[in-house]
Simulated scan of single mutants.
Amino acid sequence: MSEVCVRVAVRIRPLLRRELLHRHQVCVRVAPPGSGQVLLGPDRLFSFDHAFGPTAGQDEVYESCVQPLVESLLDGYNATVFCYGQTGSGKTYTLGGGSQDEGGIIDRVAQDVFLLLAERKSDGSVEATVRVSYMELYREELRDLLDMNTDYKELHIREDEKGNTGKKKKKKL
């Protein structure tokens, strides 16, 4: 795996039917295709590790951004896919897919993890425990999306006095 710890991809969704009916205009596009650059309006250029236009399929996004993470998982590395964007920007579609025929990142990761584990286990050299988290942070409230009984208020993000998140270190006496 390369030395880059964080990679950023942007996916531009197509205009929705209601946006087309209201004659909204496309204001963001990948330019030039394959460059990892996005053009906002006529002249604001932004660079990313990956940039996907409205016609990019789930396969292309998964194979470019996530599949290498799955392969590194089985080599002992941790991996996180973090989706960020405003409501309606396409996060759920990218993660969960639009239909059973075109699964999203979650479906593909689960399938690949267990296929790769089965391949490695066939020679008897691998024993694995799989742990998965699917969290939503919305308006500073955290929810475990894999636990249907979890209320937003039940999970808390903990910060120390310096604003750091995570476990507090115990002081040695």
Results as ranks from 00 to 15, higher is better:
L115Y: 05
E71P: 00
D101V: 02
Q58P: 08
S89L: 05
Y134R: 05
A128V: 06
V130A: 03
L117N: 01
Y62L: 04
G103A: 10
S72R: 14
V113L: 08
S64E: 13
V66G: 07
I106S: 10
R131P: 00
Q86Y: 05
G98S: 15
G85R: 10
Q86A: 11
E63N: 08
F48L: 08
Q86P: 08
Y93L: 14
D59A: 14
K91Y: 03
L39R: 11
Y84Q: 09
E60R: 09
D75I: 02
G96S: 12
F114T: 01
A118N: 14
G88T: 07
T94W: 07
L117H: 00
Y62F: 15
V38H: 02
T87R: 08
L115W: 06
E60Y: 03
V70M: 07
G41S: 09
A118L: 05
D107G: 13
L45N: 04
D123W: 05
F52Y: 04
E119F: 07
Y93H: 15
L95S: 04
T129R: 13
K121L: 01
G98V: 12
P33F: 04
G76F: 05
G90R: 10
Q100D: 14
L73M: 09
P54R: 02
T80G: 04
R108T: 13
L117S: 04
Y84L: 13
L73N: 02
T94M: 08
L39E: 14
V70C: 08
L69W: 08
S133T: 10
V66K: 02
F52N: 05
Q111I: 01
Q67W: 01
I105T: 04
V109N: 01
P33N: 01
F46W: 10
A51N: 06
D75V: 08
D112E: 12
F114W: 04
T87D: 04
V38W: 01
G53E: 02
A128S: 13
L69D: 07
Y77V: 09
T94K: 03
C83F: 06
P42R: 10
D107F: 14
D59Y: 10
Y62H: 04
